[in-house]
Design a protein around this nucleic acid. Structure first.
Lengths: 195, 195
DNA sequence: ATAATGTTGGACTGTACAGTCTAGTCCATT
DNA sequence: AATGGACTAGACTGTACAGTCCAACATTAT
């Protein structure tokens, strides 16, 4: 090979992410090639079909979803607040919004991709969160209850109304994220404090 | 006119709803005509362009979102449980799921349609719910707090994880809806009972 | 140098589809 | 009976795009 092939491959994947998340699957190969600054044929040198490129791109961008849950179950209020802030930062960002919208739109056409993304993204996060709840419940820093349900409830409170607005393309109303996250975690703690 | 034109118009809109929600906007006019049992030209007799048909269809189907909130603020647990059950029934049904997915997918292309649907659907429901919270708080059957936030929190707990699964096309895990709704409302009541 | 390999740009094929046009049919009103 | 508006079937135009082909070019390894 002459000009470094791996560079081109990565540039194409990056361009595909850009194009697919903003224009959906209908975005054309020619457009992607143009965004990558590469000839159309070069795209086909690296990926046999548009579908293959799409699948590769989704595989390459899955890490976009991971939000770490670091912190001790001894102090759930603090740990969950930190987690909630990071969640808002990452998951409700413009980039991630476009990504989720695109996944949702193409889920019927690419069910495997959607299921894989769900497993790596939301499902993994829920598992992590449920595990945290279980440990906190064992420590009696949260009331004894179904840890999975607790995880889903917190997840729901955090994403719920915001996620809906984001899906409909409604601009975020202006308010303090920090304040909102704290109010939500406070609500969660009222419901789940050990008595 | 000979064969009743209004019938055809309604059949076309119905077919468009079916086609657009299952295949997205990419579904063809020919396909819609076929579903409606009508000639392609007849579609164009009623709607000038594909976009116009789409807009009309979304206007016609907006009522799909309305979930009534009937019941007294004197007994929030019961009223909210009934509301939650109806919400699950309606909003998380296959038909409504496909609808939401389609809206989300086409929101960038039809921002007006998306905003309108948001106003009539989720926003109206949140308003209704917030009003209920306000009245219950005035009655001291719920703790004094921000009623809008309370509404969004309950809405989030109800739709959160389920909505995500639905967007990703993940089959509902089998559990009792009623049990889940009751657990969620119970959690909400723990957080919002007046002390 | 030369062979091998990747890239380029442009021409090309085939398909799918929006939207138009036409010739003919069916029915209700006059 | 005649007029006119809606319907049908199908041909047709133009465009967009996936995917292929090819001839010329650049770079690196031998």
């Amino acid at each position: 090979m002459s000009p470094p092939s791996q560079d081109n491959r990565q540039r194409i994947i990056e361009a595909a992410r850009e194009a697919f998340t903003t224009e959906g699957y209908r975005s054309s190969i020619e457009r992607i090639a143009q965004l990558a600054g590469v000839a159309k044929q070069t795209v086909y040198n690296h990926f046999p079909t548009k579908e293959a490129l799409f699948e590769e791109m989704t595989r390459d961008n899955m890490n976009i979803f991971s939000v770490p849950l670091a912190g001790s179950p001894a102090n759930p209020r603090q740990t969950l607040t930190e987690f909630g802030l990071m969640y808002y930062e990452c998951i409700l960002s413009g980039q991630c919004s476009a990504w989720i919208r695109m996944i949702a739109a193409e889920a019927p056409r690419f069910p495997d991709m959607a299921a894989r993304t769900y497993r790596v993204g939301p499902a993994a996060m829920l598992d992590q969160l449920a595990d945290f709840m279980r440990r906190a419940m064992a420590l009696k820093t949260l009331r004894e209850d179904d840890p999975r349900l607790a995880a889903e409830i917190l997840y729901g409170m955090l994403s719920g109304a915001e996620r809906t607005r984001m899906l409909f393309g409604i601009e975020r109303e202006s308010y303090e994220q920090k304040q909102r996250v704290e109010a939500i975690v406070d609500c969660f703690m009222r419901a789940y404090q050990s008595q």
